[in-house]
Design a protein around this nucleic acid. Structure first.
Length: 596
RNA sequence: GGUCCUGUAGCUCAAUCGGAUAGAGCAACUGCCUUCUAAGCAGUAGGUUUCAGGUUCGAUUCCUGACAGGAUCACCA
């Protein structure tokens, strides 16, 4: 039983004894005491005045007295208005700390026997990744790691959008303007090469529209009849008919793009257990349409099109198959959802997709639940907001995007410059220095994107957003490096912090108790982050932890301590903090250095 | 127009699902390196939580209504 549980059960007893009232354990909630007051946990008594039939103060005092007498961990209390602040015995902290360091699997909850798939990234193969994709990839990777830490078996999946009219646009433009250019001949990364032709297509398309308009054709008609768009549509038909020339071009350009993506993913530090390709899955879902019809979940209209009626759930009627029997977007998503289940027998499925698709996923999930899928209740759309630039929204076709590769490179270069200015690379080999810059640059970028609540849209200012001080990745990385330095010194002068028994310690500094409180909170934060699908919970926690450690570091000189046990305790406290930071940051996909 | 999301310090974000005097970082200003890494620590200043009502011991949080920003409402994906 942990401290909170034993206090809660003490409160339950107190209610029984003092007010002859049965209070269910789940109803008892303890909040951390605010810094200004003495105490660790606070119990708010206002709610229970009807039960106690006493004033707030008297109620608090009565419960406080009972807890002080009957709960070993509680050494004192104070009541301010209706807030009962509980002061814990100092020995509680030392005991708690000894338990923490005895646990070899820090930050890993026991297996829960459940399987979850996290689908993220899901790029289009007609253009390179940009800033928005970075948020998606970092979020997806991190939430997968967080779910693992919560005891799930996790499958990371990437559903690659490798077919459709947008892919054909790049291909048509390449046929026209490519001159057999290749990544090798152009020196461009494959995905950037494909992206170049996607932009060229749009340019030519716009030009043709203007030409048609000059001939007196309406804009609407011009958009439909520009020769190059007709060509792209024709190419899509040929692709679906397995035309040899089209398919071989498609394969060639896709291979370039995949090579480019692989390099980008590697630098991002993300990975996948399973790739799905829309070119394989786009015809799925027809059997589910049949199933839905026979179960009465779907219905047919006069033109033979198939619909689902979600008006009873506050939504509209939604088309799931066209009158001519061809699929729409949601048809294949229905099929893919089932495919994922068939492949892995998953209990839950998380889709990391931007919030512009909120409605789509609401519909998709409602349909799967109506169809009675076993995983229906485990479907979750991790919807995240856009990343805006100071100039407004990013638009790929207008070239106002922040390219992912460029941004990562820039971050790493900034980290290098910053590190050199601080003169911190004495004794580093050039390989070590390079990997440090990479670690810091990527750490800053990932932390920046992950510290914000996913569902909020956020602003990215290339000039100002990336800092290395304050609430940033490098600040936490720095704290880790500081501790690593302490540990090196401890080993050097022979401190036996791993085998010392700390139970004799009778006094703790405030910052030490606060640190233990935070360290003990790690598992709970992992749980919350998992339940809320929010890495930002962990990011915030790690910042608080690093902040608290730095406070301790400034307040308490470790190696000047005369008492060998206390000295060893402080080193052990440092080590536990380092382990927690390292594990926590790894759940965000961020690595931490031993020196910087 | 319907639906959904968001609105907190000059800026970027928090606030433990209704709790105490709303907290951090950046930017500004003051201190602290002959002591374990100053990418740090301590401090000053900065707020009518968009606005108006309501619910109650208590509201940034819940309800209603405005206002502002965004997304979506395709037989596109």
């Amino acid at each position: 039983m942990n401290i909170q549980e034993s206090i809660a059960s003490g409160i339950q007893q107190a209610f029984k004894v003092c007010f002859s009232h049965d209070l269910p354990l789940e109803e008892i909630s303890l909040a951390p005491t605010r810094k200004e007051f003495e105490g660790t946990y606070t119990f708010v008594v206002f709610t229970y005045l009807k039960v106690s039939k006493l004033s707030p103060e008297a109620t608090g005092n009565k419960i406080g007295d009972y807890l002080k007498e009957n709960v070993a961990e509680v050494s004192g209390y104070n009541v301010v208005k209706g807030f009962l602040n509980l002061v814990l015995n100092q020995s509680v902290w030392v005991d708690l700390f000894q338990k923490l360091i005895a646990n070899p699997t820090i930050g890993q909850l026991p297996p829960n026997g459940k399987k979850v798939m996290v689908e993220y990234s899901s790029p289009n193969t007609n253009k390179p990744l940009h800033l928005g994709h970075l948020r998606n990839n970092f979020l997806g990777y991190s939430i997968a790691e967080i779910l693992k830490a919560n005891g799930y078996e996790v499958i990371k999946a990437n559903l690659v959008n490798d077919r459709g009219i947008h892919i054909c646009k790049s291909m048509v433009a390449y046929q026209h303007f490519g001159n057999d250019e290749t990544p090798e001949s152009s020196g461009l990364k494959g995905d950037h090469l494909a992206g170049k032709y996607y932009v060229l297509f749009d340019k030519e398309y716009k030009k043709q529209i203007e030409e048609l308009k000059a001939e007196g054709i309406s804009e609407e008609e011009a958009k439909k009849n520009a020769p190059i768009i007709l060509e792209a549509q024709d190419m899509l038909r040929k692709w679906e008919a397995n035309d040899e020339v089209v398919v071989s071009l498609w394969k060639k350009m896709n291979a370039w793009v995949y090579a480019g993506f692989a390099a980008t993913y590697q630098r991002m530090g993300v990975n996948f257990d399973k790739f799905y390709y829309e070119s394989d899955t786009y015809l799925l879902g027809k059997d589910i349409v049949e199933e839905g019809l026979s179960k009465g979940v779907f219905f047919k209209k006069a033109d033979n099109s198939v619909w689902v009626d979600l008006t009873d759930e506050g939504l509209d009627q939604k088309l799931v198959q066209r009158g001519d029997g061809t699929s729409v977007y949601i048809t294949q998503d229905l099929g893919t959802a089932d495919l994922k289940y068939k492949d892995f027998k998953i209990d839950k499925s998380v889709y990391v997709v931007g919030n512009e698709q909120d409605y789509h996923f609401e519909v998709l999930f409602k349909i799967m639940r109506k169809l009675g899928r076993s995983y229906g209740s485990g479907l979750y759309h991790l919807s995240y907001g856009m990343v805006d630039l100071p100039t407004g929204k990013m638009k790929s076709r207008e070239g106002t995007v922040v390219d992912a590769d460029d941004l990562m490179q820039e971050m790493i270069e900034t980290a290098e410059q910053h590190t050199k200015e601080l003169g911190k690379i004495d004794g580093f080999s050039s390989d070590q220095a390079t990997s440090l810059y990479e670690m810091l640059g990527m750490g800053a970028l990932k932390y920046f994107l992950l510290k914000v609540d996913p569902k909020k849209r956020m602003l990215f200012n290339p000039q100002e957003s990336i800092e290395f001080q304050g609430n940033t990745g490098p600040f936490i990385q720095y704290s880790h490096a500081r501790i690593a330095s302490i540990l090196r010194k401890a080993v050097q002068i022979g401190v036996n912090y791993k085998t010392t028994d700390f139970s004799g310690i009778s006094h703790l500094e405030e910052s030490e108790a606060d640190l233990i409180y935070l360290l003990n909170d790690f598992d709970r934060k992992i749980e919350i982050a998992g339940e809320e699908f929010s890495p930002s919970v962990l990011a915030q926690y790690l910042f608080d932890l690093a902040k608290e450690y730095n406070r301790f570091y400034a307040d308490v000189p470790i190696f000047l301590e005369n008492d060998a046990t206390v000295l060893a305790f402080r080193v052990a406290l440092s080590e536990q903090t380092a382990k927690t930071i390292k594990k926590g940051m790894s759940l965000l996909g961020i690595t931490v250095p031993d020196r910087m």
